[in-house]
Simulated assay, not measured.
Amino acid sequence: MIKYDRLWDTLKEKGISQYKLIKDYGIDKAQLHRLRKNMVVKTMILNNLCRILDCRIEDIMEYVSDDMENK
């Protein structure tokens, strides 16, 4: 499973709110909802987030095996 928990930590570290992502950077509310729920998102969104936050993909997402998720 791909999890986006790291995104919220990176946003906090960079001092960027979800509101700012929506208003200043044009990130769609629906995409943020999908990220909060660890749902499928387009790679374009992930690319934009990395650009906005000046970070690596590992700073916003991680892979957690289903075995680890069930424990």
Rank of each mutant, 00 (worst) to 15 (best):
M1F: 10
M1T: 13
I2A: 03
D5M: 00
R6T: 04
L7A: 04
W8Y: 11
W8Q: 08
D9M: 03
D9P: 00
L11P: 04
L11F: 12
L11E: 06
K12R: 10
K12W: 04
K12C: 01
E13G: 01
K14V: 02
K14D: 06
G15L: 03
I16Q: 12
I16K: 10
S17C: 05
Y19I: 05
Y19Q: 10
K20L: 03
L21C: 05
I22K: 02
I22T: 06
I22M: 06
D24H: 08
Y25V: 05
G26H: 11
I27T: 10
D28H: 12
D28C: 03
K29Y: 06
K29W: 03
A30G: 07
Q31P: 00
Q31T: 15
L32Y: 12
H33M: 02
H33T: 10
R34A: 08
R34K: 10
L35N: 06
L35C: 07
K37D: 01
K37I: 00
M39Y: 09
V40F: 15
V40A: 10
V40R: 11
V41I: 14
K42P: 00
T43G: 11
M44R: 12
I45S: 12
L46T: 11
N48L: 00
N48Y: 02
L49I: 04
C50W: 02
R51S: 14
I52F: 12
I52Q: 09
I52K: 11
L53S: 12
D54P: 00
C55L: 02
C55T: 13
R56F: 01
R56G: 01
I57F: 11
E58C: 05
D59H: 08
D59Q: 07
M61E: 15
M61N: 13
E62I: 07
Y63R: 07
V64N: 07
V64R: 07
S65F: 05
D66Y: 14
D67A: 09
M68E: 13
M68Q: 09
M68K: 11
E69L: 13
E69S: 07
N70D: 14
N70Y: 07
